[in-house]
Every structure is written in C-alpha cells, then in structure tokens.
Amino acid sequence: MTSSINGRKPSDIFKAQTLLYKHLFAFIDSMCLKWTVEMNIPNIIHDHGQPISLSNLVSILHVPSSKAGNVQRLMRYLAHNGFFEIVTNREMENEEEAYALTVASELLVKESDLCLAAMVECILDPTLSGSYHELKKWIYEEDLTLFGVTLGSGFWDFLDKNPDYNRSFNEAMASDSKMINLALRDCDFVFEELESIVDVGGGTGTTAKIICETFPKLKCVVFDRPQVVENLSDTNNLSYVGGDMFSSIPNADAVLLKWILHNWTDKDCIRILKKCKEAVTSDGKRGKVIVIDMVINEKKDEKNLTQMKLLMDVNMACLNGKERKEEEWKKLFEEAGFQDYKISPLTGFLSLIEIYP
C-alpha cells in the first residue's frame, strides 16, 4: 500500500518522521549531559563505591520527593545512551534498580586523571551554545564568524575580553589534552631523536608536561597567547613563551600543532605552516611539524565516526575553520612548501600527521 504523498510508503514516512524528531530534540541529549555534570552524579556514584539506588541518589541530591520520578526518567535516558548502567540490587527487598558508572560517565568524574567535565561545562555554557540559534543570520554574513554575529567579536577576541570564560575554555582544552596524552604515550617514534620541540597553542602545558616526563632530555617550549602563559612557571626542560604564531614561532627540531589548524581557514593555515617551516629549518636543520587533527575519510571510516567528524566540521565552520580530508591536508602542506607527510592513527577520531620540509 502506498500513500498519496509523493508515492511514499507510510512505513517510509513514519521512519522519516522518527529521524526528524530524533534530531529535532537532540538538544535534550546535551542538556541531560550538562545536568548530570551540574548535579555531580558521576562523582556521587564513584564515591559511593558501588551502584547507587534511585532512593539513595535522590536523598543525596536533596531532591523533593515529587521530583524523584523525574530523576529516574533522566537516569533511564542517560543509561540508554550509554552514560550509566542500570543494575538490580538484589540485596534489597524490592530489588530496587541501581545505577553504575560506564566508561563514558567515568570520564565525567571530577578530579580524576581523565576527566572531560570541564569540556561539558565550557561547550554547553549558554554564551557559546546559544550562538547556534543564529545560524541563519550567520550564513548571510560574508565576513563574520558565528560568534562575530552573536558576541560582537571573533571567538579569540571574546576570550581575551572575558577572563572567566577564557579560564573555562583553557580548563576544557587542558582536559581534552589529557585524552591526547593517553595516546601519545605509545608514540615514541614521533619524538625519538628530537632535542627540542615547540607546542604551539599548548595552553597551560598539559601535553608538554607529559612529553617532558616521557622524554626528560627533550627541551619543550609551550608557545601561546601572552595572557595564557604569563603566570606559568618554567621547569628544568619546560618553558613558556608568549607570542603570535602568525608572526614567528621559536626555533626547534619539531613544532607540535595539536588541534590548532582546524580552527583556521586554508589561507591562515598556510601562513601558520610557513612559520612552522621556518622554525624547524633554522640553522640548516631539517626538522618536522607534527599535526594532531582530524582526517575525514568517509570511504574507510564507520558511519558513526564519520558523523562525529562531519559534526565537528560544522562546528568549526562557525569559527571559519574546517575539518579536512587527506587531499585537502596535502594541498595545504604543498602550498606551505613541505615535501612529504605521513598520517598515523592516534585516537578514535584524531590522526597524527608528520610533515617534512
């Protein structure tokens, strides 16, 4: 049986409606994630030492009894999405359901070695997330980024003018760096035989500290905006330098660009890469540039991974940046004067690219 709507089957129309509604209400996914961080639920379960019952959780949260059912519904949905596991506590008379952490919610336990709660708090701040209501207005503005439309300035200028949000952003980037550090521990081949490295846009030095600990003979410089590094202290083989990567980058055997180039247009990336090339070819040396970023590969990646990368590409478009395919990366490297490159897998969605002058 077919419908009268473009000859579509009712089953196909209903399936399309489900897809539409899934994305229509997708913002609730983010808000539920924000809620669990704000309520500190991952820490509560972690500190409890075992799965926690709904009644116990509600008691700890001091939630009115009239809202206990709503807590249960939120937890059920978060569990369905993989953030908690629902188990049955058979020691209780009514075999009450209890909630246990999963790998995803373990990443939200504050003060843990690998914690992304700061990323949730930063990205879902209404100042940032609210800007996405203005996509229509932004798409008609020839020169402005989305944040230029909504905040009255570029994102980086906004950070400079808002210390509290700048601090939140730096904490978020530091938390993400810890995830990358986990992958870098198995990348000895990247850093062996290097005597010096500059981490451009290295923030407060989260990644640089791991590199220094792993390779104590390697001299590491964290290079970032002056206001980011001005109050940070040097150590034996780690130092901080403030400056502008578009003007010059300290000389070294290697330059690290960790999740930097996706923030910028092709034209700006070429400018940055040319400065990197100058830094690693000083005094006749032929060092390398190490890029950690996404490589879109729709033909080889599974659908969910491609969806994540394309989602990030839309996100970066709002900053006038982009996620790139290998052929797009290659074009940038060649236009910046590099001769060769090698791509290696790093994390689930990030790759490590070594570029040679």
Rank of each mutant, 00 (worst) to 15 (best):
T127D: 13
L159R: 05
L78N: 06
F147T: 12
E38F: 05
D113W: 01
E93A: 13
L20G: 08
E141C: 11
E134K: 04
Y77M: 08
T102F: 07
K136W: 03
V120Q: 06
D160F: 02
E91F: 06
H48A: 15
L108R: 01
E142K: 15
S66P: 00
P163V: 11
G82P: 04
L54P: 01
Y77Q: 08
H133F: 09
G130E: 13
P51R: 04
S30P: 00
L144T: 04
A26S: 14
G82S: 05
M75F: 05
I60D: 04
P51W: 03
Y140G: 01
H80I: 06
V109T: 10
W138E: 09
W156Y: 14
I52G: 02
M31S: 13
I86M: 05
T127E: 12
G154D: 10
R73T: 01
R73G: 00
L124F: 12
K161R: 15
K22V: 08
V37N: 09
V149T: 10
L57P: 02
N89W: 03
H62M: 07
S53A: 13
V71F: 01
N89D: 15
A100W: 04
D113A: 13
S112F: 06
F83I: 06
N89L: 06
S105T: 13
G130Q: 09
F147E: 03
A26E: 14
P51A: 05
T36G: 00
V71E: 00
T150S: 14
E141Y: 07
R76H: 01
D160S: 15
L146A: 01
D160W: 03
F147W: 11
H133W: 06
S59T: 14
G82V: 03
D125K: 10
I139E: 15
S65R: 13
I139T: 13
V120R: 04
D143H: 14
M39W: 12
K136Y: 07
H48M: 04
C32P: 00
T88M: 02
